[in-house]
Design a binder for these strands. Sequence first.
RNA 1: GCCGACGUAGCACAGUGGUAGUGCAGCUGAUUCGUAAUCAGCAGGUCAGGGGUUCGAAUCCCCUCGUCGGCUCCA
Length: 600
Amino acid sequence: MTELQTLRHSCAHVLANAILVLWPEAQFAAGPPTSNGFYYDVELSHRITPEDFELLEREMRRIIHAAQPFEKQVVSRQEALELGRSGELASLGARSTPSYFKLDIIERIPLEEEITLYRNGSFLDLCAGPHVSDTSKINAFRLTHVASAYYRGDEKNPQLQRIYGTAFPTQEELEHYFSMLEESKKRDHRKLGKELQLFTFDDQVGPGLPLWLPKGTVLLEELEKLAKETEFQAGYERVKTPHIAREELYKTSGHLPYYAQSMFPSMELEDDDQKSSYYLKAMNCPHHHKLFSALPRSYRDLPIRFAEYGTCYRYEKSGELMGLMRVRAMNMNDGHIYCTEEQFAEEFRAVNDMYLQYFRLFGITRYQMRFSTHDPAKLGEKFVDDPLRWRRTEAMVRDVLTSNNIHFVEIPNEAAFYGPKIDVQVWSATGREFTLATNQVDFAVPQRFGLLYTTSENKKATPLCIHRAPLGTHERFLGFLIEHFAGDFPVWLAPQQVRIMPVSTRAINYATMLLQELRSHGVRARADLSTEKIGAKIRLAQLEKIPHMIVIGEREEKTGTLSLRSREKGDEGVLSKEIFYQRLQEEILQRKLTTKIKEI
RNA sequence: GCCGACGUAGCACAGUGGUAGUGCAGCUGAUUCGUAAUCAGCAGGUCAGGGGUUCGAAUCCCCUCGUCGGCUCCA
C-alpha cells in the first residue's frame, strides 16, 4: 500500500468510527482505498444522504483532532471470531448483534495468514493495515458521494450503502483534486456531445440508442474512413453481413444460452407453418465464420482477414447504460483473421502495431494493455478444456508483447472462454474505466463451426482466429475521443473545419467565393454571413470549437489573402489563400494531430 | 436488473401549496462594425407521462418512463 493509500484507508476507519457514533448499530463490510480516495460499505437502516455528510465530517474532524493512535494487535483466529460474535469488530464496543460481515471476511482469510486488528480510540476493526501513526495525520479529507453496492459485488448478496470520500496529505492537494474534477466534468462527452450537437438520445427511440446528428456523423464517417484505409493497407478484405440471424447460428457459436441475457429477446416468426426465431446480432464473429466456410479454403489462402463495421445490439442492463460509453446499439470496428498456428505470432503482432499506430495518430498515451489469461482450475468450466492450446497461445501473446516492449499487466482468470486476449483500458472524464479496444485469440469457436482449410499435406485443419477491434466501437471510441480532445478535434476530424467570417456585408461576395473554393477542395467550411460584429462571430466559432477561423474584409479581398485565426493559437495574421489551402490539405490528408492534448 | 438521487422553454438554472420566471440560444427590426458577446422588440411551457390528496399542485403521495451516482458484465 502506498503512503497515500494508507492515509486514505485510515480515513475510511475514521469514517466508520464517525458513522458508529451516530448509528451504533451499523454493520460494516469492506473499506479499502481506491484510485481516487476511499469508501466504506455499511449496512444501516438509516439512508445516509449527502445532507448527513456535514454531521459525519464534523464527527470525523473531532476524531482526527483527538490524535488517536492506530494500535495494531495480532490475534488468533479464535479470538477474532469471538470478537466478531460479540459484535465488537468494526464497532465501538460489544453489541447484541454479531459483526456478521466481518465474521464472513475472517472465514475467507487463508489459514496460514496472520489476523490483525487495528484500534483507534474505542473503534476496533478487523484490518490487514497498515495505518498512519495516529488520526491527526489525516489532514485534508472530504466525503464525496454515497452509492450502493452488493456485498462482495454479488447481486445475490445484501445491498450495502457505499460511502465514498477522499483524503490528501494537504488541503491544497485536496482542493486541487476537486478543481480537476470540475475541469473534467466540462469535458464529459455527454455534456460536450450536447453542446457541440454531435448526438442525442430520445425516449421514444429508446435508452442506449444514440442518434447521430450531422456533426457527429462526420466524426463517425471520418473514423470509418481511417479504419478502411488502414485495414486496406494491412491486407484486410471488407465484408458485409446482416444485423439478424437465426437462433441456430448462436447455438452453433455457443452464445446461446450463455449470452442470451445480454441479447435482445428473439423475434418469433411463423412462415408456411415453419417456426423460426431470429436474434439481433450481439457480435459479428458467427457471421464472419460463415463467410469463411462459404468457400473451400486452402493453406495458400491464409491468412484471411475479414473486416466490417458491424452493427451489434446488446441488451445491457438499464442501470449500466452511460452516454456513448455503454450503449445498446453499436458499430464495431470488427475484424477476424483466420490463420495457421505458424502465422499467428506475425498476425497478432500486426494487429498490435495497428493499435499503436492509431494511438499515436490520436495522441493517446494514457491507457493500459491488459493481458487476460485463463485459470487452469477453471478449465472445462469457464474456459475451453484445452490446456496445451492455452499454454501455447498465451505464450505467443506474451512473447509478442514483450518482444515489442509493450507495457502490460497480466490478469489471470479474465480470458474469453475461447482464448486469451488483450484489452486496452482507458478512463472516462468521470474516472470510470472502460475497455476501448480488444484483441482476442480464439482456438475454440472455429472448431464449433467446423471451419477447415486444406493443408499442404492435403489434410484438413482448423484455423486459429483472431478477433480484433482496434477502434472498439464508434460509440465508445468517439465518446472517448470527445473527452480526450475536450471537443477540440484535430482538423481532419472536425465536423466543421473552417469558418469564414466577413467583417461586414461588404465582404460577403469574397466570403462566398472562398467558401466555394474551400468546398471544391473537399474542405468542410461554412461562412457566417450574419450582421453580427466580428467579435461575436469569433466568439461563436470559438465556442463551436472550429479549428480555423478566417476573417476577411476589404483589405483581404483586394490582395486575395485571408486573415487566419486558429482555435489553438488565436490570431495568426494575414497569409495568401494558396498557402492556407496547402496547409489545410496537409493537416487533413496527413491527419495531423493539430490539437494540444491537455491531460487531466 | 437492484439501491439512492434527480427530471421546470432548445441549453443553463430559479421557483416548496395560491396567476410559471431569469440568462443565453431562436425570431423580427435597427446597426456595417477588424480578432471571445451591438441594441431594441417578440415569441417560446400539458413543469417527463399517468393517477391521487386538496377549494387550489411544478411544489405533497403513488405508479410508469428517462437521466445521473454506484454494484455485475463488457466494446
